[in-house]
């Protein structure tokens, strides 16, 4: 009966980011969400549990007020959550997040056979936490996985790589990072959300960790990308196509034909 841990990050929902009046972005009204690929990680953990039994726990590193994220994660199926939190855990660098997770997972009594992470977070998308965590725990890792088959003491995974698909066998315990193609996450029903609040959350504070994790990333500014539009309308008529080509050459977007 496997023990599966799924890692998730609570990130700004980009749908709520708005352009400010100047160059800056307006983040005053943003809402948060479970990082997109982490939803796939949670879903995959729950599907494996539905097939093979065992238990699923969610684990996250964040700020103490990220409680909505815990309810969201737990409404998707895991039976408990580990909440490693401190108000300083704001702008953590991926290596720090991995170190914190490794200390909690490796140093405590958490029993696991498989750790599932998303391929990257939908805010930084550095794609480092999974592989770094595996390295720190000294367990095998497969990143960019699109399929997982679970057997007695091993998993067989398909990795999507540039030239094709790589099939790997990993002895357990192991870590995988998953691609969005691996599944389509369920939409929690009403009762799933209601029961999430009743599931246990293990609260782990900074004082229970040995390392210090002073922020080493500082955001100097975030500005909006401007997309200028020329407001020129062209049809698929031949004369319009040649005027499009002319206009693109004139603007230096494409090279001219001598």
């Amino acid at each position: 009966m496997p023990g599966i841990l799924c890692c998730f990050k609570w990130v700004v929902d980009e749908a709520y980011i708005r352009a400010g009046t100047g160059k800056e972005l307006d983040l005053d009204w943003v809402d948060y969400k479970i990082s997109d690929y982490d939803r796939n990680a949670i879903e995959e953990a729950v599907r494996l549990q539905e097939k093979h039994g065992g238990n699923v726990s969610a684990i996250t590193v964040g700020k103490p007020d990220d409680t909505k994220g815990l309810k969201d994660a737990l409404s998707r199926g895991p039976e408990k959550a580990y909440f490693i939190n401190d108000s300083s855990f704001d702008n953590l660098e991926p290596s720090q997040t991995a170190a914190i997770l490794a200390e909690v997972i490796g140093g405590s009594s958490i029993d696991y056979d498989l750790i599932i992470c998303g391929e990257g977070s939908s805010d930084l998308y550095a794609r480092q936490v999974g592989p770094r965590l595996a390295a720190k725990l000294g367990i095998p890792c497969a990143a960019f996985v699109q399929k997982i088959e679970m057997e007695q003491d091993k998993i067989i995974v398909e990795r999507k790589i540039e030239d094709g698909v790589e099939v790997l066998e990993l002895p357990l315990p192991a870590l995988v990072t998953v691609l969005p193609d691996i599944n389509s996450p369920r939409i929690p029903g009403l009762k799933d959300t209601l029961s999430a609040s009743k599931k246990p959350v293990i609260d782990i504070g900074l004082d229970e960790l040995s390392g210090s994790f002073d922020p080493c990333l500082r955001t100097i500014s975030i500005s909006k990308a401007n997309m200028e539009r020329n407001g020129v309308k062209l049809s698929s008529e031949p004369q319009d196509i040649s005027s499009l080509v002319d206009a693109l050459i004139k603007q230096g977007v494409i090279g001219g034909v001598k």
Binding site: D31, T67, K71, D72, G189, T193
Partner: peptide, 18 residues
């Protein structure tokens, strides 16, 4: 409440999908 917000978001996702 956080639950009410999640429930609204889940219904929004439901409507987008179905």
């Amino acid at each position: 409440t956080e639950e009410q917000e999640l429930i609204r978001e889940n219904m929004r996702e439901f409507t987008r999908k179905y």
